[in-house]
Design a binder for these strands. Structure first.
Length: 854
RNA sequence: GCCCCUGUGGCGAAAUGGUAGACGCGGCAGACUCAAAAUCUGUUGCCCGCGAGGGCGUGUUGGUUCGAGUCCGACCAGGGGCACCA
């Protein structure tokens, strides 16, 4: 019995593809194009099996589409700027650039060994000046077009590290590294005006019909269009007022307080006079900027003592609070609270003893007795306790209130978006420099295009807190491009989402002196199938959609949507292991002891087995690629990643599962190379006689070709693999002495090898040659099913009595109804249950089921 | 807090409203072997029964239907997202 020599074979065929430059493509107007793209990785170190699932899926699609005759663009590159490189620099004293490029080299080699069909000629790294110089030019064009601007905004500030923190770096209100209490702080930053396109970004979601529903929903919620009213409360005893925004102006007569954000100008004004207000605001600022944290925190308020006057009743005064749950970024940073019909307001009112007056009565409730206890009523209904609104339903009341506010010149109806402009400034070193000079005399001056790129300096140190660009002795000192006076460079760098917002355009003409060649982009774009994690469902995808609109407005191209099809794959998970001291252990550090309990290999100490979680370095529950590829080969890893779970769901990596795939690969190898009968030539005609088994197997082969094709088109890789296994089982069971068995076996082997090719390309290429074919399989077309073999002459119908299965009957396909009924009623189990009575009803679903109702 | 998703054998999972558990992992029994590994064969939802067979079963609970894992309502459990990680 031979064993598939995975090492030699995989290496050999990869070389054959490389020598042929099989996956290098150019624009070819004669062929339909297909652009397959997996979200490019951040070069964080080494790949583990969890990383390569989406690349494998993309590769299956790329190879499949190629076999279907498409001109397939399938590129790969590196999202190479980012924080981990700086963390590495601080932790192990390596330069972010060196660290990044070393990781790229390692990970690139790992991807090559997976046999993924990339056009490596188009490889890009976003940290390369030849990449980011174009981004700097785009920024300048955005600036000119009014799509980039500067304003102040709130950030999480670590006072010890002198740096801005991401929400995930804020743990229980403290900086992750320093442990210092985090402050909310105002900083002058660069923004992209994504809100300019809010309406279009929202409306166009409807056109993205090959995107997952859930991603579209997340984007809709993110943009968060709401219709409401913006209006003023006058403040008693003060000349100014408070402008509020509300989506429920209909509930205005249920108002019991007005609240402003801790960062509202009024709050800040009060803080300057009142130390208690200042202390409260400082307390709120401890919460950081995360909406999740703010909204989940206990509702707290500070009574300012000010009174707001109800817009429709001069004699009605409402207390004004500073409240920790009011967000400055949304609406006007101030609200009125109607506790009966908003849960947050209700929690707040209960805490501070404010009135709860219901103003909307549920349609089926009694208006006179309707009261709110501890759950706000947010459903539809008719207005009560609301003067001129009484009796109206909620939408009419909204319109009426807005009309009245407008009549009194107190406010107006307004559409608001939750979407905020995209803050792109980062106080970091390892990012694309923002090409701006700050001059005392001229103000903000763009760097002239001739001076691009503004390169990152190499000689930086990470020994003190803050932004290394700011500490650099010379880099930021330049002459003003306008007046020549001494000036200073912008030391902020771009958010790394900026690079990933247009990299798919760069791939179209990766070495072009311009950002991209318009003709190439027009040929390849949009991306036909984009594949990546759902964690990018909102930001990356929305920013990319914004970028195409912004670039179009600046004359770069004429296109709004970058990704025609989107697929979000699930994560790869693995059990987690911890020793007695709570330290995480790698899977290869543990084994099963004699009694079945998990212990450390060294020392046999007990191990706590945790639940299966996404593979991550921090929890060490990772399986290295090398470990799998060295022992079982890339094809085993690929096939396992595709076979056990539906691609959109999480996959549990198990050693047993991987071994099972390895067994299957060897089974296929032996089926072809050690077939029990001599295979006739590939082009040998069908024998005149096939016995029944051979005929059935042949039909299954052709059905499998059809099913697998449909499954690949529909991203059902796990089912495609199951179908192929079923076919291999059937073909392997053929009696070799049967009439036509050899010929059918040949058909089965050919189909197996070709259908498996996108998933196990190395194995298939090797077996293709074993089957006597000379040209590379990678250049061969996809197999076609023989339509005449797809439909069987007889069908098995299930027979139910009162909905319960009692037997089956074999009948000719499309048998007429009377025959079907008679056959079903003739079943002993049916007549027994009928007890001699005629059936009350017989439901016949042609070719499927008969249900006898007695 | 708000929004969203998922619950099917010991495990990963299949199943246009129509034979629940395809395919695989694991287990059990057997063949080959001096033995083991590898490979192959059989078996494997649960309960009752010697058997033929019967009963029960898709998180819980109601409903729609000739028929519900699938549709609708309520509930329970687990997970994800919420703007400087990428």
């Amino acid at each position: 019995m031979s064993r598939y020599n995975v090492r030699d074979n995989e290496e050999h065929w990869r070389r054959a593809w490389a020598e042929r430059r099989a996956f290098a493509v150019t624009e070819d107007p004669a062929k339909p194009k297909y652009y397959v793209l997996e979200m490019f990785p951040y070069p964080s170190g080494r790949l583990h099996v969890g990383h390569v699932r989406n690349y494998t899926m993309g590769d299956v699609l790329a190879r499949y589409k190629r076999a279907r005759g498409f001109n397939v663009l399938h590129p790969m590159g590196w999202d190479a700027f980012g924080l981990p490189a700086e963390n590495a620099a601080i932790a192990s004293n390596v330069h972010p650039r060196d660290w990044t490029y070393e990781n790229i080299a390692v990970m690139g080699e790992q991807l090559r060994r997976m046999g993924i069909a990339y056009d490596w000629d188009r490889e890009i790294a976003t940290c390369h000046p030849e990449y980011y110089r174009h981004e700097q030019k785009m920024f300048l064009d955005f600036l000119r077009a009014g799509l980039a601007y500067r304003k102040e905004s709130w950030v999480n500030w670590d006072p010890v590290e002198n740096t801005v923190l991401a929400n995930e770096q804020v743990i229980d209100g403290r900086g992750w590294r320093s442990g210092a209490p985090v402050e909310r702080r105002r900083l002058s930053q660069w923004f992209f005006k994504i809100t300019e396109f809010a309406d279009d970004l929202l409306n166009a979601i409807k056109t993205l019909d090959r995107w997952p529903e859930r991603v579209r929903l997340m984007q809709e919620n993110w943009i968060g269009r709401s219709e409401g009213a913006r209006f003023r409360f006058r403040l008693s005893g003060r000349p100014d007022g408070i402008e509020v925004y509300s989506t429920r102006p209909d509930t205005l007569f249920g108002a019991s307080f007005v609240a402003v954000s801790p960062n509202h100008p009024l709050a800040e004004e009060l803080a300057r006079r009142d130390p208690k207000a200042a202390a409260f605001i400082q307390e709120c600022n401890r919460l950081g900027t995360s909406e999740a944290v703010i909204e989940a925190a206990e509702k707290l308020g500070f009574d300012t003592g000010l009174k707001a006057v109800h817009p429709f009743d001069d004699g009605w005064e409402l207390p004004v609070y500073i409240a920790n749950f009011v967000l400055m970024e949304y609406g006007t940073g101030a609200i009125f609270g109607c506790p009966a019909h908003d849960q947050r307001d209700l929690d707040f009112a209960r805490k501070y003893g404010l009135p709860v007056v219901p103003v909307v009565a549920p349609p089926d409730g009694d208006a006179a007795t309707f009261a709110v206890a501890d759950e706000a009523y947010t459903g539809p209904g008719r207005m009560i306790n609301s003067r001129f609104l009484d009796g109206l339903d909620v939408p009419d009341a909204k319109r009426r209130v807005v009309g009245e506010l407008e009549r009194l010149d107190a406010g107006t109806g307004e559409v608001q978006y939750r979407l905020r402009d995209w803050g792109v400034s980062r106080q970091r070193y390892w990012g694309c420099p923002i090409p701006i000079v700050h001059c005392e005399a001229c103000g903000i001056v763009p760097v002239p295009e001739a001076d691009l790129p503004v390169r990152l300096p190499d000689d930086v140190t990470f020994d003190k807190p803050g932004n290394p660009l700011d500490h650099h002795p010379t880099w930021k000192h330049v002459a003003c491009p306008g007046c020549g006076a001494p000036a200073r460079r912008e030391t902020d760098t771009f958010d790394t989402f900026v690079e990933s917002s247009w990299y798919f355009l760069r791939y179209c003409s990766a070495r072009d002196p311009a950002a991209f060649d318009r003709k190439a982009v027009d040929y390849w774009m949009p991306v036909d199938q984009y594949i990546g994690g759902v964690e990018h469902a909102v930001l990356h995808l929305l920013y990319s959609r914004f970028f195409l609109r912004a670039l179009s407005r600046c004359g770069y191209l004429d296109m709004a949507e970058p990704f025609a099809g989107l697929f979000t794959q699930g994560m790869v998970c693995h059990e987690t292991y911890q020793d007695g001291d709570g330290r995480w252990l790698f899977p290869e550090e543990v084994c099963r002891g004699e009694d079945g309990a998990v212990v450390t290999i060294e020392g046999r100490r007990p191990v706590a087995v945790g639940r299966s979680e996404k593979m991550s370095k921090s929890k060490k529950n990772v399986v290295g690629l090398e470990a799998i590829v060295d022992s079982y080969g890339a094809d085993t890893a690929r096939l396992f990643l595709l076979s056990d779970s539906p691609p959109e769901r999480d996959l549990e990596w198990t050693d047993g599962g991987a071994e099972g795939v390895w067994r299957f690969i060897n089974r296929v190898w032996r089926l072809v190379t050690e077939s029990p009968v001599a295979l006739p030539a590939a082009e040998a005609p069908r024998p005149a006689v096939l016995d029944a088994d051979a005929e059935a197997a042949l039909r299954l082969v052709h059905k499998t070709i059809r099913w697998v094709t449909e499954d690949l088109e529909g991203f059902r890789f796990n089912k495609a693999v199951a179908r192929i296994r079923e076919m291999v089982n059937a073909v392997a069971e053929l009696d070799p002495r049967g009439a036509g068995a050899g010929w059918v076996l040949r058909q089965g082997c050919e189909a197996t090898v070709r259908l498996l090719a996108p998933m196990t390309p190395h194995l298939s290429e090797a077996l293709w040659k074993e089957l006597g074919h000379a040209p590379l399989l990678v250049d061969s077309p996809w197999p076609a099913a023989d339509e005449s073999l797809l439909v069987d002459d007889t069908v098995t119908l299930a027979v139910q009595v009162n909905g319960k299965l009692r037997g089956t009957v074999e009948l000719p396909r499309d048998a007429e109804r009377g025959l079907v009924e008679r056959a079903a009623l003739a079943l002993p189990a049916v007549s027994r249950l009928a007890e001699g009575r005629p059936p009350r009803k017989v439901v016949v679903v042609p070719n499927r089921i008969v249900n006898v109702v007695v």
